[in-house]
Design a protein around this nucleic acid. Structure first.
Lengths: 109, 109
DNA sequence: TGTTCATATGAATATATTATCATATATTCA
DNA sequence: TGAATATATGATAATATATTCATATGAACA
């Protein structure tokens, strides 16, 4: 384990009920395949809504609704560029959290 | 970032649709407050079902149902000790994943 | 200005998930 | 063996969540 990782693990310390609820709410964002696909689609950088729709082959309204929840959770951010809205990841930990999950899955025999 | 962390982030590379679905299923486990409380209750080591029920102040059936899903996801494991079943965390990444989420939450202003 | 393109949003439907209740199973011990 | 204790499980009810459809909003440009 890297030092930063050790620090993180040790920092879990005390977590109150409210914080555990907040954590659950956060992880809920990663717990939906549409949302996690959106985040993955943004790994390489910002994309507009239409591009995300194409990537996931899903209808625009569904994507917009999910982008809204992701934004509320501060996992993506948006900026306007003319008619389009450009979305990008808004958190350094998004990739880490997904990587952690991937490690877990790959560990299984 | 520690070296291990960098390695993890870089290892995300290509993830296919199936893998993203598996990831979503995994994070779903963390996305429920009952389940995340159970995992947190097991941070210090194994506990039997009754102890977990007391910790969370929830009825035994609900806890057993959730323990079952956590076990299916290989996040907890169980062993019998007489009449009791002792549950414990079954993954080194559980604490890391929760720590990552905690970092995200604490980062918000 | 008004038409077109891109995105957002509200309401309704469809679906998934969780907790509860009743009961079954497994273990211990008298 | 049979009573007591601990846990698991199936079915149901309660609730939450995601997607769709219709439409609204906002920007660009002729």
């Amino acid at each position: 384990m890297g030092q930063e990782e050790l620090k993180l693990v040790n920092s879990i310390g005390d977590v109150d009920e409210v914080e555990l609820m907040e954590l659950a709410d956060l992880f809920k964002m990663f717990g939906d395949s549409t949302r996690i696909k959106i985040m993955y689609a943004l790994f390489d950088g910002e994309k507009n809504v239409s591009e995300i729709c194409q990537d996931l082959d899903m209808n625009q309204s569904a994507i917009s609704h999910q982008l809204k929840t992701l934004k509320a959770s501060k996992l993506v951010k948006a900026r306007r560029a003319g008619k389009a809205m450009l979305y990008s990841l808004d958190d350094d930990h998004v990739k880490m959290i997904i990587a952690m999950g991937k490690e877990h899955i790959e560990e299984e025999e």
